[in-house]
């Protein structure tokens, strides 16, 4: 299904574009590959900026507004860079029933950051998840990719600092 047309030059010579290009090539630069490609960008760069969205749009020949519409429809995609460390508080039902809302509140207070935001020094992002599927460990948080089980408002900060280093 490879379509013949001129390949567009990546925005920079950053090697990470090769991963993005490989994804697009694997899908024959087909517009259908938009979501897969956005995943590749996010995985490589951590978030999707306008430059990346432009490049992906043009390479796959998807209208700009459509790309933006897709990128904002799916909450997995981040349009802003995240903090150096991240904490995802699961708000799934099992976690919620066991008080994850209070865990979230405690983290927000301790780091002075609203859910979905990053601290002004760019150190720490606080995020929420619909359900990470670790209901047996409720309430669970994910710090820098590691799931920490059975959180309470009392121990959550200590647990986060254990992984992120004392930091912010």
């Amino acid at each position: 299904m490879y379509r013949h047309f001129t390949e567009i030059e990546p925005p920079s010579d950053d090697k990470r574009w090769r991963i993005v290009n490989a994804t697009m090539r694997r899908h024959g630069y087909h517009p259908h590959a938009l979501i897969e490609t956005l995943h590749a960008v996010q995985q490589s760069f951590g978030y999707l900026d306008d430059e990346a969205l432009h490049y992906v749009s043009n390479s796959l020949r998807v209208p700009l507004s459509q790309t933006y519409g897709v990128a904002t429809f799916y909450h997995f995609f981040q349009l802003k860079p995240g903090g150096r460390h991240s904490c995802v508080v699961c708000l799934g039902t099992a976690c919620y029933i066991k008080g994850s809302d209070q865990v979230l509140e405690r983290v927000a207070e301790a780091y002075d950051v609203q859910p979905g935001q990053t601290t002004s020094d760019g150190e720490f992002s606080l995020l929420t998840a619909r359900c990470i599927g670790s209901c047996g460990l409720a309430p669970a948080v994910v710090v820098d990719g590691d799931v920490i089980p059975k959180m309470t408002p009392e121990n959550v900060i200590e647990q986060i600092r254990r992984i992120t280093g004392n930091g912010s």
């Binding site: 306008d50 209208p63 700009l64 507004s65 459509q66 933006y68 519409g69 904002t72 429809f73």
Partner: peptide, 26 residues
Amino acid sequence: CDEIEGAHTWDLLGRGIQSQVITDLN
């Protein structure tokens, strides 16, 4: 804009009650 003009300048941003029509990359 998409079907007749063929420009596809417009699309929708976000979802649910937060949706909004946008032009290009918002």
